[in-house]
Design a protein around this nucleic acid. Structure first.
Ligand SMILES: [Mn+2]
Ligand SMILES: [Mn+2]
Ligand SMILES: [Mn+2]
Ligand SMILES: [Mn+2]
Lengths: 140, 140
DNA sequence: ATAAAATTGTAGCCAAGGCTACATTCCGCA
DNA sequence: TGCGGAATGTAGCCTTGGCTACAATTTTAT
């Protein structure tokens, strides 16, 4: 190969970064959901909803705490910090927009919900804005 | 939590599976691209295009070989098996459809290309079919 | 009040996917 | 022809995100 390509690798870099953020985003969103439903998020419930063994959830929560997104005391529930709540809000909003867009272009409801769980983490802010504009256009 | 939820975890399972397939898909597609351009895919070119160090590409190729998707001899290029070529074809097709759909709903071209690199791996066959139907509808 | 059950913590294993450092092989050119 | 630089291989390290097994704690029920 003769030239190095500066733009070529960008998409892959982005995809890798998104993949590493995905788990954090899903946990934060789920903790927020459980807090709304039960007042707190228990490790067992997190693990059950995410479909993993409980030590996996424990490890993930440890990382969230390390990153300042959550707090918890031993044998007690997990709670989001302000920063965590803010992330939960934007993640939830993005999730909803992605599902709505998929449905708007003809994806069946159940499929849209399933695929959105993965797709959402790769939708940049500019793409999200385009989705919102499209949905607005289509609704009016 | 009272009940276990059978459907709730599905989206997360799917997303995890897709994430683990993503690397394989990108490598296979890239090997196919390089083969078309240069007649063979060299480790150095793969690494450069994917934006990783060369031992990372070597490891990935080792996995492809283990899975029967590629073959190679020491210090020589990497080639896809029939199975690998088939995967490359479908991955490339999916990539194109995703980019086309993003553009069709108003995402700027460069952004569409970047985001598609991650999104493509989470688009199920049913969603892909819906995208194609939408694009056909819109074109005619 | 206490024993059983459920929940949480902890230890330690594995594979994947990054990396750097260094060894080896190949290839183009003087 | 042979040498130096480029390409590739290999070793070994790290983090993440899975898991099982077992220990400790808390909650529930008798
Ligand atoms: Mn998700
Ligand atoms: Mn989500
Ligand atoms: Mn990709
Ligand atoms: Mn692609």
């Amino acid at each position: 190969m003769t030239e190095t390509d500066p733009t070529q690798t960008k998409g892959f870099d982005r995809a890798r970064q998104a993949a590493s953020r995905a788990l954090t985003e899903d946990y934060v969103e789920m903790i927020s959901d459980l807090a709304a439903e039960f007042g707190e998020a228990r490790i067992t419930d997190l693990a059950a909803r995410l479909g993993v063994a409980h030590p996996t959830a424990t490890k993930a929560v440890a990382r969230l705490k390390r990153e300042g997104l959550a707090v918890s005391r031993p044998y007690r529930g997990v709670f989001l910090t302000e920063e965590g709540e803010a992330m939960a809000e934007s993640v939830r909003a993005r999730h909803r927009v992605v599902v709505a867009l998929l449905r708007a272009v003809g994806v069946p409801d159940e499929v849209a919900e399933l695929d959105a769980e993965g797709i959402e983490h790769h939708v940049s802010s500019r793409t999200l804005a385009a989705f919102e504009a499209y949905l607005t256009r289509k609704t009016d």
